[in-house]
């Protein structure tokens, strides 16, 4: 992992570290097997935001355009946080849930198979 540079003290500055986002942290939200949205997306969120607020206020902005969005049963929704299964307590904050800066939170809804069942 050592980089070969002219000087041994070569380093790059972390361009996207937490303090650069004015009090917010970045959270990426994806909805597995719903490729109507070409990719997961980036949201700057207050670290003290409760999970329930995320469901109520952020999710519609993120995925509300999808024809299946209204069919999501949030109590049955499964989650993957940073590549591990995750069961959030809806009353807790992002920080309390270990949803960190630049964490990737994926929504999984096996019963919803996307537009025409094609994962879209």
């Amino acid at each position: 992992m050592t980089i070969r540079a002219l000087r041994d003290d070569y380093h790059g500055e972390f361009k996207d570290s937490l303090e650069k986002f004015g009090g917010a942290q970045l959270v990426y939200l994806g909805w597995d097997k719903h490729q109507m949205f070409c990719s997961s997306r980036a949201f700057p969120l207050p670290p003290e935001m409760r999970f329930q607020e995320l469901l109520d206020n952020v999710m519609p902005e993120a995925f509300g355009q999808h024809p299946e969005f209204n069919q999501i049963d949030w109590n049955k929704a499964q989650w993957i946080l940073d590549n591990s299964a995750f069961q959030p307590d809806h009353s807790k904050s992002l920080t309390e849930l270990d949803i960190g800066h630049k964490s990737l939170l994926r929504l999984v809804t096996p019963e919803l198979t996307g537009y025409k069942g094609a994962g879209i």
């Binding site: 980089i3 070969r4 540079a5 002219l6 000087r7 070569y10 380093h11 790059g12």
Partner: peptide, 8 residues
Amino acid sequence: HYKPLWDQ
């Protein structure tokens, strides 16, 4: 994007 390896 990046710092030159030869002129950081």
